[in-house]
């Protein structure tokens, strides 16, 4: 599965890269010598989920058992390559946060608390490649921008919590398929001074996964659309 997803990602990125290579000359309409085309950024990545998941299905699952995801905040890290005065390519990633999945539905399953209980944790890594278009001139302090791109999300350190095990009926092995989906962003860049700048952005992307939980051979599944929206505040350094 990982291999397959990696292949999908590589294909997606190759497409983006090829597009950039082809587009770059045309995009470089008002290019002026840029002595520091590379930037790195660090900041706060605040992710809000709008989960839409199917009810869990499988043996011994009561109707209406669903899932939700807790919002997370993590470290935002990005590399930005300026292609021209108008176009940037951003590769953004968060430091893999501990994502908590909670039960949604009946207050209890049997006598075991369910609704709102943290039943699983996983870390995800979600690199996003964005092609961004900056408005206003290079000399402006504020430069709004918009971007489109591709998000890849993969999950690791997947653990059913003690509460999750109690709900599922025993030690539980989780698997979550990786996700590739479109991403979009709007933001504003503020040139501070020298090589320093700051940004604030709002992004959306489509992240979905097929979750499968194996508890002593009893397999329960669901499809989760995380519907993440992210707010980023960061500072950057160009070189």
């Amino acid at each position: 599965m990982t291999t397959f997803s990696a292949r999908v990602l590589s294909a997606a990125l190759a497409t983006v890269s090829a597009g950039l290579y082809c587009a770059a000359p045309a995009l470089a309409d008002d290019s002026s010598p840029n002595s520091s085309p590379n930037s790195v950024r660090i900041g706060l990545y605040s992710v809000f989920f709008h989960v839409d998941a199917d009810d869990l299905s499988g043996p011994f699952v009561p109707p209406g058992a669903n899932l939700d995801a807790r919002n997370v905040e993590t470290l935002y890290l990005a590399y930005v390559r300026s292609l021209s005065s108008r176009f940037d390519v951003e590769v953004a990633a968060g430091y893999p946060p501990l994502q908590k999945t909670v039960g949604k539905g009946p207050a209890t399953l049997g006598s075991v608390p369910y609704d709102g209980q943290v039943i699983a944790t996983a870390r995800w890594i979600a690199p996003t490649v964005l092609l961004e278009y900056k408005f206003l001139s290079e000399s402006s302090r504020f430069r709004p921008y918009i971007g489109v791109g591709v998000n890849y999300t993969t999950f690791y350190d997947r653990n059913s919590t003690a509460q999750g095990n109690a709900i599922s009926g025993g030690p539980t092995r989780l698997s979550l398929t990786s996700s590739v989906g479109p991403a979009g962003t709007v933001g504003v860049r503020y040139n501070i001074a020298g090589n320093w700048h700051a940004i604030a952005s709002y992004s959306v992307s489509k992240v979905s996964t097929d979750l499968s939980a194996d508890t002593a051979g009893e397999i329960r599944t669901t499809h989760i659309n995380f519907g993440p929206q992210a707010l980023v505040v960061a500072v950057g350094y160009s070189f």
Binding site: S5, A6, Y152, T154, R173
Partner: peptide, 25 residues
């Protein structure tokens, strides 16, 4: 002139390596 994308590839490569790790309870 378009610019080299080498650093970009390096970061993506690192990201892929990270995603290959993985374990579950």
């Amino acid at each position: 002139m378009f610019k080299s994308l080498t650093p970009l590839s390096a970061i993506l490569g690192a990201a892929l390596l990270c995603s290959c790790g993985g374990s579950s309870s």
